Computed example of a mutant assay.
Amino acid sequence: MKEDKIKLFLVDDDALFLKSLEIEFLDHADFEIKTFSSGELCLTSINENPDVVILDYHLDGITKGAINGLETLDKIKEFNEEIPVIMLSSQDKIEVAVECMLHKATDYVVKSETAFFRLKQIITKVLHTQKIEKQLNWYIDRM
Score class of each variant (00 low, 15 high):
Gly69Trp: 06
Ala115Gln: 11
Leu88Ile: 10
Glu82Trp: 01
Gln135Pro: 01
Ser90Asp: 05
Lys125Ser: 11
Val126Met: 02
Leu18Asn: 08
Lys34Gly: 10
Arg118Asn: 12
Ile33Thr: 00
Arg118Gln: 15
Lys134Thr: 08
Ile62Val: 09
Tyr57Thr: 00
Ala29Asn: 09
Ile67Pro: 03
Thr63Gly: 11
Gln135Cys: 10
Asp60Ile: 04
Asp12Cys: 10
Met1Glu: 03
Asp92Ser: 15
Lys7Gly: 07
Lys111Cys: 15
Leu73Ala: 03
Thr129Ile: 12
Gly65Gln: 04
Val98His: 02
Leu10Gly: 11
Lys120Met: 06
Leu70Asn: 03
Pro50Phe: 06
Leu26Val: 00
Val85Glu: 01
Thr129Cys: 05
Cys42Tyr: 02
Ile62Ala: 09
Glu78Arg: 12
Lys111Thr: 10
Ala66Asn: 09
His128Ile: 00
Ala15Ile: 04
Leu136Gly: 01
Phe25Ser: 08
Asn137Ser: 12
Ile33Tyr: 01
Ser112Glu: 07
Glu133Asp: 13
Glu78Ala: 14
Asp14Leu: 01
Leu26Cys: 05
Leu43Gly: 03
Met87Ser: 06
Thr63Gln: 13
Gln121Pro: 00
Tyr57Trp: 07
Val109Leu: 05
Asp27Asn: 14
Pro50Arg: 04
Lys93Asn: 12
Asn47Tyr: 12
Asn47Ile: 08
Ala115Glu: 13
Leu18Val: 02
Asp30Phe: 07
Ala29Tyr: 06
Gln121His: 02
Trp138Lys: 13
Asp12Leu: 13
Thr44Leu: 15
Val109Ala: 10
Val11Pro: 13
Leu55Arg: 04
Ile86Asp: 06
Val85Trp: 00
Glu95His: 01
Ile67Lys: 06
Val85Ala: 00
Ile23Thr: 12
Lys125Trp: 01
Val85His: 00
Tyr57Gly: 04
Gln135Ser: 10
Leu21Ser: 09
Gln91Pro: 01
His128Lys: 13
Asn47Ala: 14
Leu21Glu: 15
Lys134Ile: 06
Asp13Gln: 05
Met143Gly: 15
Glu95Asn: 08
Ser38Asp: 10
Leu59Trp: 00
Thr106Val: 07
Phe116Leu: 13
Phe17Glu: 12
Gln121Ser: 11
Glu71Asp: 13
Tyr108Met: 15
Ile83Tyr: 03
Asn68Val: 08
Gly65Met: 04
Phe17Thr: 07
Arg118His: 14
Ile46Asp: 12
Phe117His: 10
Pro50Val: 02
Lys104Ile: 02
Arg118Gly: 09
Lys34Asp: 14
Ile6Gln: 07
Val52Pro: 05
Tyr108Trp: 07
Lys125Val: 05
Val85Leu: 02
Ile67Trp: 00
Ala97Gln: 13
Phe116Lys: 09
Leu26Lys: 11
Phe36Val: 10
His128Val: 00
Thr35Cys: 13
Gln135Trp: 05
Val53His: 01
Ile33Gly: 06
Lys77Ser: 09
Tyr139Glu: 10
Leu73Gly: 11
